[in-house]
Design a protein around this nucleic acid. Structure first.
Lengths: 210, 210
DNA sequence: AGAAAGTTTGCAGATCGTGCAATAATTTAG
DNA sequence: CTAAATTATTGCACGATCTGCAAACTTTCT
């Protein structure tokens, strides 16, 4: 029946999650990545070691704020549904940012996390590899987008999957670059500008390689 | 003084490496990926647990046959030097396969390893994330290639790095797709065809997104 | 209030990976 | 050929991540 009440249980859960992410990021910034052990994070969040894994699949997930719960089939369907006026490139980029957003936008955590990315750039790469977990879902989404284009009309299902893969890797790479730039410049501009930058990157790449 | 003699020491080293890779792949195929523990692999190769890490940085490296020793600045320079007549796309793809080749070509191991990839497709994804380790070197290589094109002539160094990143991710993604296809079809055709397929993939992607 | 459902926690244990120092094998020099 | 130098192997101790399980606890529902 989908009430609007969050309920005590859910509120506590969200709070614990935030406490864990905050502790993780804080410790990384204060003591360095190598000192951000599981024990340290859990102690900082005042939560048992075991509980941590009720919230995250790995230590790194807490640091980079990976939130797979947000990437549902419904969420993807919604993004796919709201693309009147978008061409292929824009639609795919917005799909990609649909996965990325929970990590790069948010509360006070955002600024801290961006400092972490600035200090440990390889973690940005880890975000990209998060996409491997949703490869199948994202690929399907891209396929749906490509089907709107007459240029992909004659492809077999197998070809379409491959094509979607290629398009997706270009867009994920460009998105990562755009986010990297954004982080380097202090992550002050609104996210929409990052999205536009990513779209622009894809376009110039396509333009120049042609 | 660069003699052609391999020497007993080097021969033994190569042999041990092969034994480890063979054991890893064999056990995965025989018992399943989850049973291919470090202990099992080392026992299969008749080598101490500790010695394993004189050869590989991680367990997975042995399974997928990651060989970073082959990716040297000299090797990259050589690839970059031998590209008369190649356009941007072909040059970058060949650069990418320069990193990939040690994993997908080789001895009797190849067939076994391809069976592994067929059975555990996510490991193919892990290959792609190998590229993160060489991001800097590969990015520089791609920059060198892009500089040959007048279309990238007016970019600042920072822009060039970003552009190289975008091109690289498209090419890595296409290469992975081509290899995936190749694995799925039994990996019988020569590698040069896989390379051509990857080049073709990049070209049609660029063509269609324009 | 009491039953049902979900959450936290401790504990035991598998597994990966590293540093160190001793031992053994190979290569090199005298 | 022998002794010294270089390099490889090994065992051991250790820290760290992550999982399964069952008991205790909290929130929710009736």
């Amino acid at each position: 029946m989908q009430t609007s009440e969050p309920g005590l249980r859910e509120r506590k859960r969200a709070e614990t999650r935030t406490k864990l992410e905050t502790a993780a990021v804080t410790i990384v910034l204060r003591d360095g990545l190598e000192h951000a052990t599981l024990d340290a994070i859990c102690e900082g969040a005042d939560v048992s070691n075991r509980t941590f894994f009720n919230y995250f699949e790995s230590k790194e997930d807490a640091i980079i704020g990976a939130n797979y719960a947000h990437v549902t089939d419904e969420a993807i369907t919604e993004i796919l549904g709201a693309r009147e006026g978008q061409d292929t490139v824009e639609a795919v980029i917005r799909l990609v940012f649909g996965v990325l957003n929970p990590t790069i936008e948010g509360s006070a955590l955002l600024k801290l996390r961006m400092k972490v990315f600035k200090e440990y750039p390889h973690l940005l790469g880890r975000i990209a590899s998060q996409f491997e977990r949703f490869t199948q879902q994202l690929n399907s989404g891209v396929q749906a987008i490509l089907k709107d284009s007459h240029r992909y009309a004659n492809e077999t299902p197998a070809e379409l999957e491959i094509s979607a893969d290629a398009v997706l890797s270009l867009c994920v790479g460009s998105a990562r670059s755009a986010v990297k730039e954004w982080v380097a410049s202090g992550s002050t501009t609104p996210i929409e500008e990052v999205i536009q930058r990513a779209i622009g990157l894809v376009r110039t790449t396509v333009e120049r390689l042609k």
